[in-house]
Design a protein around this nucleic acid. Structure first.
Lengths: 401, 401
DNA sequence: ACATTTAAGTCAAGAAGTTTGACTTAATAA
DNA sequence: TTATTAAGTCAAACTTCTTGACTTAAATGT
């Protein structure tokens, strides 16, 4: 049996995996419920008081949790709630868009602690990565100055850019990031920063942001429709972000829709790109964004006409993801100008009846999530935090030999 | 902190969870790779030889694995491969369809060891459950006679019936199982059999069958399109069956398609129901099924016409699930007559270009899976086996207090 | 006031399970 | 015949969770 055949198998686990899981469970419980006492944690996690005491002590030593004032009010010894320490961990997030890049740093709670934005230089990903590395260095230096311990507490670097990933070079002229797609982005930035680096598409990043701080906090099943230059869906399935076999899951922008005519991809019908085209604006300029915001607030009739069509397609998109994913809720988020997103959201009602119209549902079928230019970068930054601190199957398994 | 507020938290784990996971990992590794030696298992699972030895010994005592002849041929001491023992566990699966019910028993390897079929009596689920319980009793008695140890080795009972579940009573007259939907099926059959009982829709059951023995064996990301009286998708996402927040995920039959006309649900356009209607056959009779098979083999022009339209919609459905789920492969399976399914499959090529056309892919984009009337029942039976023996996140967590 | 009850949290020993390193066994290769 | 390689075992050590008794401290009831 010692031939070179590869054996497909999952990794086993041991006591360290047990402990790692239990630590993560405690952190998640406090994140979701607010400060909890050791007794609360023992009940909620089904672990013993003693185990919780040991783990909480470790977490406190590691600077991830801290005790609050004791709470009196019931019978018995008063309890000591523990809260998360925001400065317990930090992460960086980088959004790479067509013409610019945004960089944010967040803490363990997902709160933004620094931001930066810059235009991407000509010269493609080689020059772009140099710029991004310079921005990261500057931000790390600034953070170290303001929060010295942050230097040792960086959980990782999250990247987000438009998908889909890994396809053969396309002839679609709207696709302007082919160079970036072919570039070894993760490897370059991981090597340049020394940080654990991961890459997602912008819709997935948006879902990560909603899960950390937004409308999807604590939900196990949610679809986050990202409305930006393109359109996609970030998927929270079974409590975790789902990205498919090649990180291209949720690319609903490429689904063919055919409301009364020849089928065409959803994002040719309903996206900022489609609106720019409808208005004859040059999407290569950042002014187009501000122009759309102005005209929206001015009730430009051409925008209203586009809105009616786009809303019809979006209604169908919501119906589709509800039917296919059976989520607890659907969240509309994105990087569109906020007034436009709000009008689109309003114009989507009434929704098409679907399986989601069930007796006894508590969450709205569709809700508005994080909107605005920083949503993707914040989500990119949220991902390393969740990866490092959330209970996950893969966190239990043995990794190194 | 002792108020009655519910605290949301995942369960912690302990050494028993560790061991349970490692046992499952070993079983899955042998299932996927065939017989493996302890040394193979140690390398594949990253556990130590000693740990594997202990676990394998336990599994052998439990009658789940058995050693084979030693293998010579390389240097060093010859290895002793271990295989799964089919008689190590059994499970029952029940398909509840509109007019009849099918019951199968499978072993640890997913092989069928018994089957039964009966028409459902008038009187709705109350009478139907009585019949099903009688069938189950008879099959258990028969199994006990043939394989005495099976009585103590029943992992559970899997049920499958058409979805969607839990909706308000509908006015859709094609929907004939409203009574069954409203009935406490799982509770009744669990109480009547004393077995761990679970319920899925027929498409999910089909995916379970493909995963146990079919085209999806060992795949982490696959979509199984179930073509039967209705149409749905069974989802294998991240290595596990995904059923959504209310077991209604994958109901692609209810997605609105609008190829050149008013939008209508996919299953009104492409399903056995639509074919029966197209042919003017009474779907309430089991003869309709045989009639379709006959006419298909005779190249009935009305079937050929329907096939062309249905194939066009199915192409679009494949495009949709590829784009949304980014699976490794899509499997067409179902309970249609085999000649019809094969012709539909052939008529779906060429597929619509999609994100799945990536350089270097190894699996076909679309393949034919288990076809025929027993696919759903087999999948229903496969589920308790996987639930009891596959590595899963939830299997690690503490359950009882 | 004071005893009782209730609940939070700690202590120390024990139990469950994996790891370690040395050792044994048994085959092929030189 | 010897060296090498690899499978598998043994016993002790290690990590982590559990158990049950105990301590602490507050609210409640008489």
């Amino acid at each position: 049996m010692n031939e070179l055949r590869t054996i497909r198998a999952k990794s086993g686990t041991n006591q360290e995996g047990t402990s790692a899981h239990n630590r993560r469970v405690i952190i998640e419980a406090i994140r979701l419920n607010g400060p909890l006492s050791r007794a609360d944690l023992a009940r909620a996690t089904r672990l013993t008081k003693q185990t919780i005491s040991n783990l909480v002590e470790n977490l406190e030593v590691d600077g991830l949790v801290a005790s609050e004032e004791v709470v009196r009010g019931g019978r018995g010894q008063p309890s000591t709630p523990y809260r998360l320490v925001p400065e317990g961990a930090f992460a960086l997030g980088v959004q790479i868009d067509r013409h610019l890049t945004r960089l944010v740093a967040v803490d363990l709670m997902g709160q933004e602690v620094a931001r930066a934005v810059a235009n991407l230089p000509p010269g493609g990903p080689v020059e772009g990565c140099k710029l991004i590395l310079r921005l990261i260095e500057a931000m790390r230096a600034d953070l170290t100055r303001r929060i010295p311990e942050s230097a040792h507490r960086l959980a990782g670097l999250g990247l987000a850019m438009p998908g889909p990933f890994g396809l053969a070079p396309s002839d679609d002229e709207t696709w302007m990031m082919a160079e970036w797609q072919a570039f070894p982005l993760v490897e370059t930035l991981a090597a340049g920063t020394g940080l654990a680096t991961s890459l997602q598409n912008d819709a997935t990043a948006c879902a990560a942001a909603e899960r950390m701080n937004g409308s999807a906090d604590g939900l196990d099943h949610a679809v986050c429709i990202y409305f930006g230059y393109g359109i996609g869906a970030g998927l929270i399935l079974g409590g975790e972000l789902y990205t498919g076999s090649n990180r291209n899951a949720g690319e609903i922008g490429m689904v063919l829709f055919s409301r009364g005519g020849t089928p065409s991809p959803l994002e040719h019908r309903s996206s900022l790109a489609s609106l720019f085209q409808h208005l004859g604006l040059d999407s290569a300029t950042t002014e187009a964004y501000a122009e759309v915001e102005r005209r929206t607030l001015a009730d430009d009739p051409r925008i209203l006409a586009w809105l009616a069509d786009a809303a019809a397609d979006m209604r169908q998109a919501v119906h589709m993801v509800e039917t296919i994913f059976d989520p607890q809720t659907v969240i509309l988020s994105g990087s569109a100008p906020e007034p436009l997103a709000k009008r689109l959201f309003d114009a989507m009602f009434p929704l098409i009846p679907s399986n989601a119209d069930r007796p006894g549902r508590t969450l709205p079928r569709l809700q508005l999530g994080m909107i605005g230019p920083w949503a993707v970068a914040l989500g990119a930054a949220a991902e390393p935090i969740r990866r490092a601190f959330d209970p996950r199957f893969s966190a239990i398994l043995k990794t190194a030999s």
